[in-house]
Design a protein around this nucleic acid. Sequence first.
RNA 1: GGUCGGGUGGCCGAGUGGCUAGGCAGAGGUCUGCAAAACCUUUUACAGCGGUUCGAAUCCGCUCCUGACCUCCA
Length: 487
Amino acid sequence: MTNNILIYNTLSRTKEVFEPINAPFVGLYVCGPTVYSDVHLGNCRTFVSFDLIYRYLLHLGFKVRYVRNITDAGHLEGDRDEGDDKFAKKAKLEKLEPMEIVQKYTLGFHDVMRLFNALPPNIEPTATGHISEQIEMVKQIIDNGYAYEVNGTVYFDVEKYSKEHNYTLLTNRLLEDLLEGTRVLGGQDEKKGRLDFALWIKAKPEHIMHWPSPWSVGFPGWHIECSAMSNKYLGERFDIHGGGMDLAATHHTNEIAQSQACNHTQPVKYWMHTNMLTVNGTRMSKSAGNGFLPGELFTGQHPLLKRGYSPMAVRFFMLQAHYRSTLDFSNDALDASDKGFKRLMTAIALLNKLKPSGEKSGLDIQDLEKRCYAAMNDDFNSPVLLSELFEAVRFINSVYDGKAVVTESDLALLKKLMNNFVFDILGLQQEIPQSNDINKLMEFVIKLRNEAKAAKDYATSDKIRISLNEMGIQLKDNKEETSWSKI
RNA sequence: GGUCGGGUGGCCGAGUGGCUAGGCAGAGGUCUGCAAAACCUUUUACAGCGGUUCGAAUCCGCUCCUGACCUCCA
């Protein structure tokens, strides 16, 4: 663990050396999905990004407690803490219990994460499972004088808070400007300040999801769950809090205010924000209707898609961009990633066929390893890591072609390196299940073809090759042997 | 309007002062019965205009374009 990791901290807007509060333990909290509908690809990008970060920290030997919540209550449709609960609305629409909605989309989310080979978090707490913790936190905030109750609803007093603390430290905006932006025309607002947000909301009669509290039968505000649950599982102050950039201005700003108001301490040392996935330069989002579901992406069943792409090709596509950059989606970009991913995987499969020789390898493997770590240490720069790994790909292919040599010790090191970085850290995996049945079958077919070739019966050998090609199997002739892969 | 970003070759995407990532696509070559794969070589760059510097895609200024957030969304 001699690596110095640099992490871009939204708080300081610079890369900072990562120093865990309690090394080797690391507390990592990531805002999870609101499970009232299917996750779309943009959501997935964030979770894949943090999966990379989690995996790398684990690889380095940190004892990471990774908490990612499931928001299953309290997230309202409209702004200003009014309107319907997202779950209740969807429940009415689908004629289901709200918790059926939650269950359905939670399971769907897990399925998708599994397809993307994202490791599950250590704890995946739900808002509904932590109502009492949220109520306790709200009580404490009221006791500390930063919240007030009106007609059974509790609001956070932003203006009071901002006199003593920097409310906008994540975004650098001026409070006055915020007030400008939220000028309310309607006069029925029961909040004291325009920026105040709800910690606890009194349920209307038609509201299905509600719990008793000291103030009313109601439900928690959206932001309080993350404060309460991160506090419970990671403590008043923990290392890394992550989420999409879109959450910084409101959700995370309010999280900080709540935790600070409750515990008198800054909850998070490093705030990390992932950038958006865009389509034609515009953010993919639920409301814009330009998002597609992972299932649609895998099958290609969407007007924007010309064909389907495998989960690993998509993961590779995401890893080819840095997590803080926007990533623009297009069929061409995914085609390129798909091919690049296959090239990487093919080379790795070739590793086991390489025969070591010589005194000195054609590539400095130790130096390559250093560069790989350097890339990841620099704010988890997976695109640079991949570019280093492709240097290894070229080398592996050259050795296989007999145009370069690798020593026995370097080959072992190379295998370890590729395994560590490609599978453990980048979280990629081979997609073709190498079942014995198909392998034996292919061995047989290849043998037939090679016999035909030996007899100069090219009509037969070409027929075999072309037919296989039409079935999606590509034969690759090498000097010594013939291998195959899926196209 | 405010805050924070971005404009890199055909596409995606790294890169913050000199050594000009990477993937895909294109071109030429090697290999091959053919094809593919693989390897080697290679073309089209840093929005524009000024400035700082021996030297700028990289720093500064201005202009243009564009994105996100400020209202539910990772």
